[in-house]
Each structure stands twice: as structure tokens, then as C-alpha cells.
Nucleic acid binder design. Structure first.
Length: 453
RNA sequence: UGCGGGGUGGAGCAGUCUGGUAGCUCGUUGGGCUCAUAACCCAAAGGUCACAGGUUCAAAUCCUGUCCCCGCUACCA
């Protein structure tokens, strides 16, 4: 049996899940369900990223223990995925004991391969923003270009990963596997970064302790990103459960948001090469959702919970809308008006009506039983051919994550279904017993179409 | 500053790589039909494809320049 391993980003739990996190996860669920239907053994992974300064701050602000805070937040994510009826096979938390052990083992491997060294990380640091800045980016009087507050020169002893060593190998990887990073324009962005050369990456911090301790040097905690990326391995048993790990690794697709592409498309493969582990087959970076044209943000208060929509319109309607209306890969706008438009026009008027017409006529003309095929007509062939074409383009589209096209194709068939009824006029056929066999075929064909849709 | 995305009938988009009658959904208008949902089916109106040059027998599509909108520029899906 063929396998398929799909992952979502693990969500950083310094804030509650919103429509954006739900979008990524719903897409992954759609991929997982599609592959299961196609006969694959699927592992669909999602989870939460729980270490780092920001999480610690959130916990402190609430005056609760960091682990306790994480437990509460992780539950919110888990609960939401349940309510959205997502079919994830795993839910990894970076505070899981086995995950933390895996991280340490992984980092040990890198060290054994000579890719970790101790160095000094220095720079201008904006404490409230937690950001390092280059000297030339600073504003007048050494202030932060982002928030205008004063920056501080900090110097910290850290461990570094020899990322620079992997520039050429990554370039070669990109050249040899054009599908490795998708969509194309995202791959090109990464290529340009590679071409400009990579700097070594500081992979530990000493300013706080909420993280995975560095093996043999617990004063240092491992940088959250290094910690987080390894979830894709730890969740399927690396390195102890060899059988499960080897069954599913390498990942078939890491589904991510565009803002974390660099970590997945450059740092992650470099880490894996260093550790001697095969690379994932594809990184797919999707776009961002705006809400009614505005960026999702806490301060605007538009970070609405997806449940607000699910409760009113239902899970399937929300999914349909997200896949149909938002070109996958690009940024898109989420608007309730458009959602309603899709529900009315596509789900109710086209699909709903077709189903309703078919069912009512079967009740009326055939006592509610689906008839066998009777007399055929050339129009039946047209319907059949369109159906066949639809299912093959559907498969083709879904394999390449072109959800909008896949759905457009299906709706072409649905619309033709409605037209087919008008052309064959079954309500007229029903008035005369002589036409019974022709009527049977019409109704039979309609049921077939609906069943497959 | 740099990089990226976009500018196509009222709205949202496809088409641009591989030049050759401008397409889809929604909306609008008129008609048809009754199995059905203010539904469905048919038809029509509506676009100098941001702007200006250029290449070509022919450009939304290739080249040059300009304008406008949006995003990113390192740890926020």
C-alpha cells in the first residue's frame, strides 16, 4: 500500500487559533481525505509549537506556569480541530517528552557531524520586539526602525549551526527538483536567498530557559525553530520507532504559510542533510487570508474564530468556500458575503436543486426506487463523457493541489446535470407510460452523477 | 532602497510561459419551463485587457518605459 505523509505547520500558541490557522489545517485535511479515498495509507500531522520567549511571556502575564498555559492553549487547538471534524492522525506538542528527547538526539547528530560550534551572537536588539537589527537599518539615535524605541547592544555566547556549508548542496537540490518548493514564485524567492549566500545560524539562547536544553550544556536552550521543525520527525517515531518512521518518512508534502518558507525550504533541508536523513518531497507555501480585505490581527479584533462561521453555515460550506473561492497558494480574502454567495449559488441552487429535483422525481415517478437503465439516447453519452472527463481532470487537479480547478470542474458537471433534466424533460415522460423506459434511464443517470459528485 | 504579487465588461477571477475571433462565475435585462428553491434552462446587454512607445502580417499575451494598489525585508497560518 502506498503511503502519504502530510503535515501542517505546528501553531505557535501565544495566541488563539483563528481562521488562518484553520485554513492551513483544513487544506491538509482535504489532502489527507483525498489520498485516503485514493487508496493511500495516510499520516496527517498537526500540532502546537510551545517553546520560546513569547509563550513564556504570555504565561507570566497570566501568572500561571508555562506548562500549564501550554496545556490550556494546546487543548483549544485540539478542540477546534475536533469541531471542524479534521481527521489528523497525530497531534504533536513540542513540550511532549519524546519530542524533546528527539530534538536532543537530533542536535547531537549535528554536533557529531561537526556542524555545531560555539560562537558569539552580537547585535543591536530591540527588547520589546525581540528582534535583532543590522546597524545600517537603525534609525536616528540607535532606535528600532519598527517601533522607534531604543535598541541595546547585546552579546551572547551561542551554539551555531554551519548553515553556510550547505549553500551549494541546497542550490543543487533546487536545480534538480523544481517541485521541491511550490508555488514557483516562492521557489524563486528561496533561490535568490541561496544565491546571495547563507550565514550560519545561531541555534541556542541563554536569556531564558523555556525550551529544550542543549545536550551537555543545559544553560543553553535550543532555538524554537530548530526545536519546532523536528516535530515532523518526532511525531512519527524518530529515532526509536524505526518501523513507523520508515513507513512514513520522507514527508510527501509540508504544507506551510508563506512567512515560514525560509525555515522549511532552506534551514530544514540543511539540517536534514547534516543529520543524514532523507529530505521531504515537497514544501508547499500557501498565501495569507485577509478578512474583508484587512490583515488578520489581534489589535484590529478581526481574528475571528472559524467556529463563528461553522456554527451558522456548517463545516462543509466553510470548507467548500475556502477551497473554491481562494486560489490556493495566493493570498486571498475571506468575506462572509462571498461565503454566503457560494452557499446560495453553488451549494443550494446548483447542487442542492439538482439533488432535490432528482429525488422528487424518483419519488413521484418511481415510488422512490432508483430505476435500472432503460432506453438510451445520445444525450446520455454526452452526460457520460462529461462525467468521465470531470473525474479525470478532478484527479489531475487534486494531485497538484489545484482545489479551485477541481471544484470548478465538478460544478461544470453539476450545471450540466440541471441542463440534462431540462433537455430530457422527465416530467413529460412521466405522464405517459410508454415512455417509462426512457424515463428510467434519465433518472438512473442523474443518480449516478450525484452519487459520484 | 531591494524583492515579490496584482491592475482584464458592475463584482470576483481565468487566459499571459507556447502571440492569431477576449472566457468563466456572480450580478443586470428579456424569454422559457414547472420535476425543483426568490430555483433551473435559454438569450441579450456590458470590456480601446492600467498607460505610453516598440517588435510583428497579427499582442491581454513578447520588449522598453511610466503610473497605481498590495505584501515581504528574518523567527506572526
Amino acid at each position: 500500500m502506498k503511503k502519504f505523509y502530510v503535515t501542517t505547520p505546528i501553531y505557535y500558541i501565544n495566541s488563539e487559533p483563528h481562521i488562518g490557522s484553520a485554513y492551513s489545517t483544513i487544506i491538509a485535511d482535504v489532502i489527507a481525505r483525498y489520498r485516503r479515498l485514493s487508496g493511500y495509507e495516510v499520516f496527517f500531522l498537526t500540532g502546537t509549537d510551545e517553546h520560546g520567549q513569547k509563550v513564556l511571556n504570555e504565561a507570566l502575564a497570566r501568572n500561571i506556569d508555562a506548562q500549564k498555559y501550554c496545556d490550556i492553549m494546546a487543548d483549544k487547538f485540539r478542540k477546534l480541530w475536533n469541531e471542524l471534524e479534521l481527521t489528523n492522525d497525530g497531534f504533536v506538542r513540542t513540550t511532549d517528552e519524546n519530542h524533546m528527547r528527539t530534538v536532543q538526539q537530533f542536535v547531537t547528530r549535528l554536533r557529531e557531524n561537526g556542524d555545531i560550534y560555539k560562537g558569539r551572537y552580537e547585535g543591536w536588539y530591540c527588547i520589546p520586539d525581540e528582534t535583532f537589527w543590522n546597524e545600517e537599518d537603525l534609525k536616528e539615535g540607535k532606535t528600532c526602525p519598527e517601533c522607534g524605541r531604543e535598541v541595546k547592544w547585546v552579546s551572547e555566547e551561542n551554539y551555531f549551526f554551519r548553515l553556510s556549508k550547505y549553500t551549494d548542496r541546497l542550490l543543487k537540490l533546487y536545480k534538480g527538483n523544481p517541485e521541491f518548493v511550490q508555488p514557483d514564485f516562492r521557489r524563486n524567492e528561496m533561490l535568490r536567498i541561496l544565491e546571495s549566500g547563507l550565514k550560519d545560524l545561531s541555534i541556542t539562547r541563554t536569556s531564558f530557559s523555556w525550551g529544550v536544553p542543549m545536550p551537555d550544556d543545559p544553560e543553553h536552550v535550543i532555538y524554537v525553530w530548530v526545536d519546532a521543525l523536528i516535530n515532523y520527525l518526532s511525531a512519527i517515531g524518530f529515532p526509536d520507532d524505526k518501523e513507523t518512521f520508515e513507513r512514513f518518512w520522507p514527508a510527501d508534502v509540508h504544507l506551510i504559510g508563506k512567512e515560514i518558507n525560509r525555515f522549511h525550504s532552506i534551514i530544514w533541508p540543511a539540517m536534514l542533510i547534516s543529520a543524514g536523513i532523507p529530505l521531504p518531497k515537497q514544501i508547499y507555501a500557501h498565501g495569507w487570508l485577509t478578512v474583508n480585505g484587512q490583515k488578520i490581527s489581534k489589535s484590529l479584533g478581526n481574528a475571528v474564530s472559524p467556529m463563528a462561521f461553522v456554527n451558522v453555515y456548517g463545516n462543509d460550506a466553510l470548507r467548500y468556500y475556502l477551497l473554491r473561492d481562494i486560489q490556493f497558494g495566493r493570498d486571498g480574502d475571506f468575506s462572509e458575503d462571498n461565503l454566503i454567495g457560494r452557499i446560495n449559488a453553488d451549494l443550494a441552487n446548483d447542487l442542492g436543486n439538482l439533488l432535490h429535483r432528482t429525488v422528487v422525481m424518483i419519488q413521484k415517478f418511481n415510488n422512490g426506487l432508483v430505476p435500472e437503465m432503460g432506453i438510451e439516447d445520445p444525450i446520455d453519452d454526452t452526460l457520460r463523457e462529461l462525467a468521465e472527463r470531470t473525474f479525470s481532470t478532478y484527479t489531475e487537479s487534486m494531485d497538484h493541489l489545484k482545489f479551485t480547478q477541481a471544484l470548478e470542474g465538478i460544478w461544470e458537471l453539476i450545471r450540466f446535470g440541471n441542463k440534462y433534466i431540462d433537455l430530457t424533460e422527465p416530467w413529460k415522460l412521466g405522464k405517459n407510460l410508454e415512455n417509462k423506459e426512457r424515463l428510467d434511464s434519465v433518472l438512473h443517470n442523474l443518480v449516478r452523477v450525484l452519487k459520484n459528485v
